[in-house]
Every structure is written in C-alpha cells, then in structure tokens.
Design a protein around this nucleic acid. Structure first.
Lengths: 85, 85
DNA sequence: GCGAATTTGTACGTATGTATC
DNA sequence: AGATACATACGTACAAATTCG
C-alpha cells in the first residue's frame, strides 16, 4: 500500500508538487539502471499519458532533472540519460 | 452576419476552442455529405492553410473526430470518412 | 529501381489565459 | 501574492511511409 522507497506513480494527495514527483520517479529509474546512460527517456507525450498530467508539468520535471545534470535534451530528438563521467 | 447553422470559418472571437470549431466544421461537411464515406479529407497542410492555424491545431480537431468514430487515419496516407455501418 | 514530393508521426520550444492552492 | 497545474495555440524540426513520375 505504501511506497517503500519512492512512489512509482503520481499521488494527487501527496503535497509534493507533481512535477517533483515525476522527477523523483524518473530519477529513481535512472539511478536504478532501468533507464541507462545515453538511453532516450519516454517522450513528453508518453509521460503525459502515463502520469495523466499536462505537458507543461512533465516538461517541468525534465527541466529539474536537466538542472541536476542527470539528463540532457537534444532539440527535436528527445531527452537522454547523461553518461556517468 | 450571424452563423445560422454552424460556422463555416474559424472565428477568433468565439470562445469555442479553435480545434473544436474546426472539428465542428468538418463534422458538418461529413454529415451533410460534402465529404463522403471512404473519401479522403484535406491533408493537415491544406487544413492549416485553409483555416490559418498551426498544424497541431487541426491535428487536434482530427483526433476529436477520430474519437467520435467519424473518421479514420491511414499513416502516411491521409484521413478518411468512416463508412456508415 | 530511383528520387522527389506528399502526408502523417513524433518531438521540443514557447506563449497566453485561467484556475487552484 | 506566488507557485502550481491545466488547456489551448503557434511554431519549428526531423523521421518514416507512401505515391508518383
């Protein structure tokens, strides 16, 4: 019932901003190796549909991860997991 | 001056979302028989130019009609009027 | 078979207005 | 007031498949 490490889905009752929840979910998948370095992340549209949020919201999440250096975005291509050094 | 049945052009002052206005216009043409079953609709590019909107907007309109079951799209071919029954 | 044009598919960037918390 | 979220809209770019000459 309860998330033991971090949520795997967005929880609307959680006071954590949704874009942060999504960023947390994606970060978890990156650090756990589910998304590997240089691999492309799901598109914003896929993230939208998967988490049932507006595009601006998952865009916000991706921006957060970009600021952390976890991912990088190639315009018109997609967002990729940053290589580890 | 006033639309008597449904608009034939997009009205920027109408609060109805533009994609819905375009969907309404296309639906009218389908139901009136101007576009016949199995006939291909104007391409997204043509609709863009005709209504002076962005492609994403008439794509949105087509998606709405697809959800209604009025049309179906063949990739790289075009969007067609659904046959009756 | 080839190449160009056409058309849809996909993706990101940006902006505005509104509503809610 | 400010942050967050959503809906709508426009613009741009490139990919992929089809069509046609």
């Amino acid at each position: 019932m309860q998330a033991y490490l971090s949520a795997v889905t967005v929880d609307r009752h959680d006071p954590t901003p949704i874009y942060r929840q999504i960023a947390n979910i994606l970060r978890e998948k990156i650090l756990s190796g589910e998304y590997r370095p240089r691999q492309v992340l799901p598109s914003e549209k896929q993230l939208m549909q998967e988490h049932e949020v507006a595009r601006a919201t998952d865009l916000h999440a991706i921006e957060a991860l970009r600021e952390e250096g976890l991912v990088y975005t190639l315009p018109q291509r997609g967002t990729y997991v940053s290589p580890r050094d």
